[in-house]
Simulated scan of single mutants.
Amino acid sequence: MPSGSSAKRERQYEHIKDSAKERGESNKRAKEIAARTVNKERARSGESRTASRSSTKDMSSAKRGGQRSHSGSGGPTKEQLYNEARQRNIKGRSGMTKGQLSRALGH
């Protein structure tokens, strides 16, 4: 945990780390997940000195919490499809909808 973090953030870090371990993540990966999540929450609530735009504008970790982790989800996000299309150099991808990107990629 970063120095100067509150007791609440310490508890949050431990809880997230333990949950990740229960899901089968390695100790190193569990620590990374916990640290990233807590740091993002600290940035969102103004507790950190610096914060990236994605940390402050994106939906909170708690709200997102498993939104796409359940079975039967909507598959990859539009952003994920777009990035794959960019890697494959698919023309016209910037104006495509999620469905069009999916079809162009053969998903």
Results as ranks from 00 to 15, higher is better:
75 G>E: 04
32 E>L: 15
94 S>R: 07
14 E>P: 04
40 K>H: 01
79 E>D: 06
14 E>R: 14
41 E>A: 05
63 K>F: 13
65 G>A: 14
7 A>Y: 06
91 K>T: 10
91 K>S: 14
99 G>L: 02
60 S>K: 06
85 A>E: 01
62 A>H: 13
16 I>E: 01
37 T>N: 03
41 E>Q: 13
8 K>A: 14
98 K>G: 03
4 G>Y: 07
56 T>Y: 00
17 K>C: 10
69 S>V: 12
94 S>M: 03
42 R>G: 12
90 I>L: 11
21 K>T: 09
45 S>M: 05
10 E>W: 09
55 S>T: 09
46 G>H: 01
39 N>T: 02
14 E>L: 14
35 A>F: 05
106 G>D: 02
36 R>V: 06
62 A>Y: 13
72 G>F: 01
31 K>S: 14
70 H>I: 08
92 G>E: 02
2 P>V: 09
41 E>T: 04
102 S>I: 00
72 G>T: 10
98 K>I: 05
21 K>L: 15
80 Q>C: 07
46 G>D: 03
93 R>T: 01
92 G>Y: 03
55 S>E: 15
66 G>N: 06
89 N>F: 02
19 S>K: 13
34 A>E: 02
81 L>C: 01
57 K>G: 07
80 Q>V: 08
29 R>N: 15
17 K>H: 06
29 R>F: 02
103 R>K: 10
30 A>V: 04
66 G>D: 10
